[in-house]
Amino acid sequence: MTITIPTPLRVYADGRNAVEIEAANVASALDKLTASYPDLRKHLFNGDGKVRAFVNLYLNDEDVRYLPAREASPVNAEDTLSIIPSIAGGSPGLAVQAIAPSAQSLR
């Protein structure tokens, strides 16, 4: 199967944006991925060995958290597992620091 590596984690996977892995299920695929690239482990898993809350795993177009077998879900060679950190935010409670516009338009 193919595991896609998001931009922030490529530095820990020899710069690769995807890695081919042979595995029986999602958990096994992640184990093999982190065995090949150990530095990925602390970015994907918390201290308890669970996938970090902000790390989303998609097996093809399905969120692994909502698959019946979750990380025990079987995979085959044609499957793609996407690792996607979450993206969110919002405006209230602005940080207490100088507000310094950085845009330098070449207008």
Partner: peptide, 15 residues
């Protein structure tokens, strides 16, 4: 609101 990152932006930033 100003074009400044907020604590929420920071907490939710993972990339």
């Amino acid at each position: 609101h100003p074009a400044q990152w907020s604590p929420t932006d920071f907490a939710e930033a993972h990339w």
